[in-house]
């Protein structure tokens, strides 16, 4: 994913993309993150420890609001 693909307001690091505008703060991704890399701050998910994240995808799988998802790895085919 190129930088210009990220919409204004989306937060990204090298592992995941978070869209706070869609996040309702239910805490499901935080609770079921196996490495506890996520937290809720002001009712929105934030990644507090990027190094811990293994990109297992459990947050994306169980986010009811499609507000957190894995960044595509370099050279990965789109779609």
């Amino acid at each position: 994913m190129k930088m210009e693909d990220i919409k204004a307001g989306e937060i990204q690091n090298e592992k995941v993309v978070i869209n706070p505008a869609w996040c309702k703060g239910c805490g499901i991704c935080v609770a079921f993150c196996p490495v506890k890399a996520l937290e809720l701050k002001n009712d929105k998910v934030v990644m507090v420890d990027v190094d811990k994240c293994t990109q297992c995808g459990m947050c994306e799988l169980r986010c009811p609001d499609y507000a957190i998802y894995l960044r595509r790895k370099k050279n990965e085919k789109q779609g």
């Binding site: 239910c26 499901i28 009811p64 609001d65």
Partner: peptide, 15 residues
């Protein structure tokens, strides 16, 4: 974003 309540499971199943 969908209008289901926060924490509703429907979004997960739809995905």
């Amino acid at each position: 974003p969908q209008i289901w309540c926060p924490g509703c499971g429907h979004g997960i199943i739809t995905r």
